[in-house]
Nucleic acid binder design. Structure first.
Length: 1031
RNA sequence: GGGCGCUUAGCUCAGCUGGCUAGAGCAUCUCGUUUACACCGAGAGGGUCGCGGGUUCGAGUCCCUCAGCGCCCACCA
């Protein structure tokens, strides 16, 4: 063992060994009580930051602890496609101004590629943190299964009338070129201006109303000017008409309560198409809604907008409109809040547009209770009725405040990267939401002929190679959590064998053989080498078909197409099936399914090379017969799919799936409070709506990670820290501890190098304690394999065991309450201050190696959830079998109060002697002569002698320093220092005075609890006793 | 404008339902190359718990006022 712990040489290997042991995979048939955490899926836009690191450290600690207390734990990993964020980054990445520069298909390909790269990196980083995640269940908010869940809930909501399409005032992000929900708009204070304009009356051209606005460019969209009904001018002017500046259009003067008499000129221009409040006014007064700003942020080329502004930006417009003119009066400086897009950082423009909304206040019949309710109410009830508890509690108030103000949720987005709205329109514009089915497909594993590059076509008897069988197993692994109930394969041996391997691996009963799934009949080419026939190894389907035509063909292209169509028709009726077919045939099926033809057909048929052993999915939608339909071009808000995360990852909408049955509802949802509304509240809303159950019972919100000074981390301040750098420098255990210990969900999490290195030191301390234990036990004839208590011998043994028992109990209590920081703090001090500083030292006096090892192994179990790597390493170093996480957290039934008390006295005596030594600046090597009065037993003396560096002997008590601890008086053979005694006496006297005063207070004796009074009395007599002895 | 927090040692923070001669880590100072560990050991100094009031036998802990700081929500053109 090295003198210092080297995390670099251990961490990656250990994580690999956990993965290899497949221990992280949860068992959905287990009888154990389950404990589930859905991992908040990191966005595939970036890399791991400290917020993620905190989340991972906290959740991993919870998961490991639960695992070690006998739960069947499941921590579901995944990533988020982060619609707008990703689309933005990809646009920038490609150097594009807007997405229309590329075809939708091509652009989505780019996004996919980008997302895949980022995904791989972030998964790697998550593993670096030591996260005990079940990677076999890894999900993605934008994969087929999640898409199926999204479409399913969309249909449910639509049919309940809770998803509606409406022409309403929305937030338009010019930067993202999309609508945003109210929550995605960030308001920032901006120093702008209040611009005053003259609106001349039509009937008296010299008279005008002075109107103030912060957005002059919306003037062209004005359809009224409003005064307050109580405004003195109202009587005179309401009903008259004024002219819109610059354009000369006539608009009415109206009276509306909304006008604030104390603001600006108390005269409001009303632009119903570009302001939410004006929209309301417009509704009340039946005003036209005139859109003048386009979705690209430029002025529309319409008659109401003067020609010179057509196609000009808002900014340009504003400059022009504030130049001197007969209408412009002045600009008054004015700070106000402007909405910004939370992703593209551009100004949000209120606009009128037809969009999809989730109605939160509309009544519907809850299918789980049969009662009338609203989504808003269900979301409120979660916390109000206590089904969902939020830690820290104060966020419950924030939660209610948000819900109280909640308005309909705009869910459609005009971006491309996201779940397409599952709505189709026919020629008449009627809405159709089809039923859908997903079928899984895969190619057979490598066959003997594949290995040799021989064309097999419909040749039946060709078996799989070793590699082919391995591929089949890989497919089975992928298919494990896909709820497959039946496998369908072709009648050719290689497909059948593949199917059988998967069938056996997954224990699926049903296997069907569909001969029509067979590979294309290549006639005379079968059995021939591809390379020799074509002169190259890469050939396309059409290459082969063309070649076949030259000789005798037993299957025509037309026949192939009609066979393919037949298969698709049959497949459309299947559910939960896995199809094993052949490369060319699958290509044809996919091409037909996607309605590809001509050149695109052949291109589309690629991608089924034998090395590519992956499941693919095919979706079947059921439309009404004979309708020509087109799908809504919009996509869904990214949070729509996130809202399903706790159950879409567990098999929903298949509520019969074993994962859903075993692990839903989940237990804890842990995340940063900044996404309480975006995400947590919506999961609660949709979870309760879709499953009848709230998706988790506890919400644990951690604070924002900031630097050691409590400052927000930001690029501009340059105080940002990359967790991966920190892991490299200090190790994952140290990073984890610094994010978990000394923090609370109430407050921001401060972190910095200083703190991390502090915990690195702790990890090293633990390592060295382990080194000591190993040295002590390596010579033992019988190696202590199991962590079994071999019995206490010495006083110190009893003391540490009693302490360990107590401390493990306390830690259990903390962890059950999710007070991880307190648990970490406790274990830190127990390990360092008690085990290392005292027990190890004491054990050098009276060694009991087996027992030392036992205690240490128990400590490792206790520390493991917080510090998985170093503890696992030590566990192995000490020759233990298996993995620490398979052990149970210590539950020790032992208490020896007497030993604790005596040992504490020894600690006090030793400390006192050391203090004297330090005060006298004595060399630590020098043995002091001490004399202890008060009947110490010999083990006690031995401990004191060793720990304090003294020797029991006869001392001239008159000249020696005297210290009093408990019932003992200790004389140390060094010159007396009167000042020291005096100081101590003064402090003691003050204490006595305080206690005395308290006890003399009648009210105290009467009102304070009896036990407290007794305690005070004892304290007083002890103090008096000590004072007496000191004198 | 509405709401929620925070203010305890030089720094970052613990102190739960009131019982504290007020704790920790880091930093500071002194001593130390004792065979687990200098990523260490031993010891020390340092706070009238933001201000003012109240409740109480007793307040860092509960209530009120004020001040400073932070955050969330709303959004008056």
């Amino acid at each position: 063992m090295d003198k210092a712990y080297d995390h670099k040489s251990t961490e990656d290997k250990i994580y690999q060994s956990w993965e290899d042991a497949k221990l992280m995979n949860a068992n959905n048939t287990s009888q154990k009580k389950q404990f589930t955490i859905p991992l908040p899926p990191p966005n595939v836009t970036g890399q791991l930051h400290l917020g993620h690191a905190a989340m991972l450290a906290i959740e991993d600690t919870m998961i490991r602890y639960k695992k070690m207390t006998g739960h069947e734990v499941l921590w579901v990993p995944g990533t988020d496609h982060a619609a707008i964020a990703t689309e933005n980054v990809v646009l920038k990445h490609l150097g594009m101004q807007n997405r229309e520069e590329m075809s939708r298909e091509k652009f989505l390909e780019e996004c996919k590629k980008f997302a895949q790269e980022k995904h791989d990196r972030i998964v790697h980083q998550i593993k670096k943190m030591g996260s005990w995640l079940d990677w076999s269940r890894e999900a993605y908010t934008f994969d087929d299964e999640r898409n199926y869940a999204v479409n399913t809930i969309f249909k449910m909501l639509y049919e309940d009338g809770l998803i509606v399409r409406g022409h309403r005032m929305i937030n338009w992000s010019v930067g993202a070129q999309s609508v945003l929900s109210d929550d995605e708009v960030e308001y920032r204070e901006v120093e702008g201006g209040l611009y005053h304009y003259k609106y001349f009356f039509t009937d008296s051209p010299k008279e005008y109303l002075e109107v103030a606005t912060t957005r002059p460019e919306t003037i062209f969209g004005d359809t009224a000017v409003a005064l307050h009904p109580k405004d003195k001018r109202a009587k005179k002017f309401v009903g008259k008409k004024v002219l819109v500046p610059f354009s000369g259009r006539e608009i009415p003067v109206i009276a509306d309560e909304h006008v604030d008499l104390s603001f600006g000129t108390a005269t409001l221009k009303v632009t119903p198409a570009h302001d939410p409040n004006d929209f309301e006014i417009g509704e009340r007064h039946n005003l036209p809604k005139l859109q003048v700003i386009g979705f690209d942020g430029t002025m529309l080329p319409i008659t109401e907008v003067p020609k010179e502004f057509h196609g000009k930006t808002r900014e340009h417009c504003r400059v022009e409109l504030t130049k001197p003119s007969q209408w412009f009066v002045k600009k008054v400086p004015h700070t106000h809040n402007i909405g910004f897009c939370y992703r593209s950082e551009t100004v949000v423009e209120p606009m009128l547009s037809p969009q999809w909304f989730v109605s939160v206040e509309k009544e519907f019949t809850d299918k789980w209770t049969g009662e009338k309710t609203t989504l808003k109410k269900l979301t409120q009830d979660a916390v109000r009725k206590g089904d969902v508890k939020i830690i820290p509690e104060r966020f419950e108030k924030t939660y209610f405040q948000w819900i109280d103000n909640l308005r309909d949720w705009c869910i459609s987005r005009q971006i491309w990267w996201g779940h397409r709205i599952p709505v189709w329109y026919d020629e008449k514009g009627t809405i159709h939401i089809p039923e859908e089915n997903i079928v899984f497909l895969a190619r057979h594993g490598e066959s003997e002929w594949n290995a040799k590059g021989i064309m097999q076509g419909s040749t039946k008897e060709v078996s799989l190679t070793e590699k082919g069988r391995a591929q089949a197993l890989k497919l089975a692994h992928e298919a494990k959590h896909k709820k497959i109930k039946k496998i369908i394969c072709s009648n050719l041996d290689r497909a059948r064998e593949t199917a059988e391997i998967i069938q056996k691996e997954l224990g699926i009963k049903n296997l069907e053989i569909w001969p029509e799934l067979h590979e294309i009949d290549f006639g005379h080419l079968e059995g021939k080498s591809i390379e020799k026939t074509f002169g190259r190894t890469h050939v396309t389907l059409m290459d082969k078909i063309t070649k076949v035509k030259e000789g005798t063909s037993r299957e025509s292209f037309d026949h192939l197409i009609s066979r393919g169509k037949g298969v698709l028709e049959k497949l459309a009726k299947e559910k939960n099936v896995l199809v094993i077919s052949h490369g060319a045939m699958l290509g044809v099926l996919f091409a037909l399914h996607e309605e590809k033809s001509g050149e695109g057909f052949d291109e589309f048929c690629q991608g089924w090379s034998i090395g590519n052993a992956h499941l693919r999915t095919m979706r079947f939608l059921k439309f009404p017969e004979g309708k020509k339909l087109h799908q809504d071009p919009d996509t869904l808000d990214t949070w729509f799919s996130s809202a399903l995360w706790p159950f879409s990852t567990l098999g929903w909408p298949d509520t019969e799936s074993p994962d859903y049955q075993k692990f839903y509802p989940t237990d804890v949802l842990e995340t940063g409070w900044d996404i309480l509304f975006f995400w947590v509240a919506r999961m609660i809303m949709f979870g309760r709506y879709a499953t009848g159950k709230y998706p988790f019972h506890t919400v644990y919100l951690h604070g924002l990670v900031c630097d050691e000074k409590g400052q927000k981390m930001s690029k501009s301040k340059g105080n940002g820290i990359d967790p991966i750098d920190m892991i490299d420098e200090f190790g994952a255990d140290a990073v984890r501890l610094s994010l978990v210990v000394g923090t609370s969900p109430e407050n921001p999490i401060p972190i910095g190098k200083g703190k991390i290195s502090g915990y690195r030191n702790f990890v090293n301390k633990l390592w060295n304690a382990g080194r000591f234990v190993k040295m002590q036990t390596s010579t033992l004839s019988t190696r202590v394999q199991k962590s079994k208590n071999p019995g206490c011998k010495s006083l110190a043994d009893k003391w540490i065991l009693s302490r360990l028992a107590r401390v493990s109990g306390e830690i259990a209590t903390y962890l059950q309450k999710y007070e991880i920081s307190a648990a970490g703090d406790k274990i830190y001090h127990f390990v360092w201050d008690e085990f290392c500083d005292w027990y190890i030292e004491a054990s050098k006096v009276e060694p009991n190696p087996e027992f030392l090892k036992y205690v240490f192994l128990e400590i490792l179990k206790l520390v493991h959830p917080l510090c998985p790597f170093v503890t696992e390493t030590l566990w192995k170093e000490l020759g233990s079998e298996g993995f620490l996480i398979e052990q149970t957290v210590p539950k020790i039934d032992f208490e020896d109060k007497k030993a604790e008390k005596v040992f504490e006295e020894i600690q006090n005596i030793v400390t006192e002697i050391r203090r004297v030594r330090s005060e006298k600046k004595l060399n630590p090597k020098e043995k002091l002569s001490i004399q202890i009065a008060g009947k110490p037993d010999s083990p006690m003396i031995a401990l004191i002698e060793t720990l304090a560096g003294g020797k029991q002997g006869s001392v001239d008590t008159k000249k020696a320093v005297k210290i009093v601890v408990g019932g003992f008086e200790i004389f140390i053979d060094v010159p007396v220092d009167e000042g020291r005694i005096e100081k101590e006496k003064t402090a003691l006297e003050a204490h006595i005075k305080g206690l005395d005063a308290r006890l003399k207070n009648k009210a105290y004796i009467e009102k304070a609890p009896r036990s407290l009074v007794d305690q005070t009395k004892k304290e007083l007599s002890d103090a008096k006793e000590k004072l007496k002895k000191l004198s």
